[in-house]
Amino acid sequence: MLLPRFSYHQPASVAEALEVLGQHGDQAAIIAGGTDLLVNMKHGKLAPRHLVGLEGIDGLEEIGADNGSLVVGPRLTASALAASGELSGAAQALALGAASLGSPQVRNRATVGGNVCTARPAADMCVPLLVLGAKALLAGPDGPRELPLDEFFLGPGQTAKKPGELLTGLSLPRPAEGSGAGYEKLGLRKALEIALVNVAAAIWLEPDGKTIKQAKVALGAVAPVPMLSPGAEAALTGQTAGEEAFAQAAEAAATDAKPISDHRGSAQYRREVVQVLTRRALGQAWQAALGQ
């Protein structure tokens, strides 16, 4: 399988990258790890004439702090995020999702920026980012802008990123004490598998260690985009953490899900799986929030 021909650009700064992107318009594509882009190009689905590599730009491969938030660099790989010590508390959701993506070889290349811009409904890093209330930081010809991730995803493979814009980071609230995360993925096999259903959960506890101050549940592969479950959040806020509250939230999540039937599983089965995985992910998040 041969790749179509293209020129390769290695800009040294975000400004330079925007310039190259501006020059070549829809003939240009950004490449990070290439695990989505190169596959699409080999399959003949895409044939950009210009690839813009991000490896020459400093600062896109670290987790930085900014006024109470963490800024996750778009070029961080799934492997780096899975092993990161900075993603504690609820932010652990991203590390857990990253750890379950693809295979070791894919994780060593796949970046979080690529995962977000590819915007698959089951993307293993997108579902966790939703429960963290992540914002996409974009740079473009008209200056920088921020967009909450749930407004960024528009459909399978479609995002609110304009052509010519670059994702420069993902901003998350700084991990809080008494918070924890859970992640559950069901596939037909354990590795190298896009999820049949994946669920991320995060819980923030009140200082009493029992009452749920806030909780979020996000669902993958059950709608055209990775989605938050407002029903689950409402069922959990202010409740006492435990099996009963989690079961109610799981039911609400299954109601919110809008699955379709495909070769991986039927809609009805997916709804059942959402319930089971939501319960498990919440249990995991609770234990983590308690520091266990």
Partner: peptide, 21 residues
């Protein structure tokens, strides 16, 4: 990227060399 038969180590870490330019 599915089979791993092209695995090489890049700076010590396994990668699929079919998906690295």
């Amino acid at each position: 990227g599915d089979c791993g038969s092209c695995t090489v180590l890049m700076d010590g870490e396994p990668v699929n060399s079919c998906l690295v330019l």
